[in-house]
């Protein structure tokens, strides 16, 4: 489009080919949530049609009740980066995938993130199961539909999915799948499991 980019330093724009189709009228979003290093960015990058981008969010809030955040008493400012990617689903509809850390101190991000989200993939590493406990409880409390994807790291001892389900105290209806976040097909299939689950939930609601 001949826009002057060089004088904007960091302020670039979409790389050639990263523009959305002009006919795109609406977006949907899905959130990938999990601890650090669990493979969120890898999964997003595996299925995204663009190189994953990063958006930052800053929050200023009274530090009361946010004892996890180091800071002066009174107001606390926190900045968290979220990676995201994009999949054009058809000429009119685009899916955005956001990877967000699951630790409680980042929950301030969740308000704008989960509102309107179709659902979430909770990515877990069996070597650090406990980091997902809080996330699962929070999603349940908020009524965000989710599935659990076990990212299989080679040095992790193998666990049957049903044992993991039990360890996580998952509802029997919540799907749990294995995933290789580096694989496009595996990551896509994980998203399809989420969509199928949402579809079944919806159908069940409508029958009532």
């Amino acid at each position: 489009m001949g826009s002057p980019r060089s004088d904007l330093g960091e302020r670039t724009g979409p790389r050639a080919g990263d523009e959305l189709s002009p006919s795109t009228v609406a977006a949907v979003k899905v959130v990938v949530v999990g601890g650090f290093g669990v493979g969120k960015t890898t999964l997003v990058g595996a299925v995204s049609e663009i190189r994953p981008l990063t958006t930052e969010e800053t929050m200023t809030q009274a530090s009361v009740g946010v004892d996890d955040i180091a800071g002066v008493e009174g107001k606390t400012r926190t900045t968290v980066a979220m990676d995201f990617g994009r999949i054009s689903l058809n000429d009119e509809l685009v899916l955005y995938l956001f990877g967000t850390p699951g630790q409680e101190r980042f929950w301030f991000l969740w308000k704008g993130l989960f509102e309107g989200a179709l659902g979430a993939v909770v990515l877990i590493d069996t070597r650090r199961l406990e980091v997902s406990f809080d996330v699962l409880g929070r999603l349940e409390d908020r009524g965000v539909p989710f599935i659990v994807a076990v990212n299989c790291f080679p040095d992790a001892p193998p666990h049957p999915l049903e044992a993991i389900r039990e360890a996580l105290d998952l509802e029997p209806s919540v799907p749990i799948v294995e995933c290789d976040a580096r694989s496009r097909a595996s990551s896509r299939d994980t998203l399809l499991v989420l969509m199928r689950y949402l579809y079944d939930l919806t159908a069940a609601t409508q029958e009532r």
């Binding site: 949907v28 999949i87 058809n90 998203l191 399809l192 949402l198 579809y199 919806t202």
Partner: peptide, 19 residues
């Protein structure tokens, strides 16, 4: 944006089809 509350079945079908 669209959320699944809008017209969930058609929307989710479109998402699955695209994916």
């Amino acid at each position: 944006p669209m959320s699944a509350t809008a017209h969930p079945v058609a929307l989710l079908e479109a998402v699955m089809d695209g994916l």
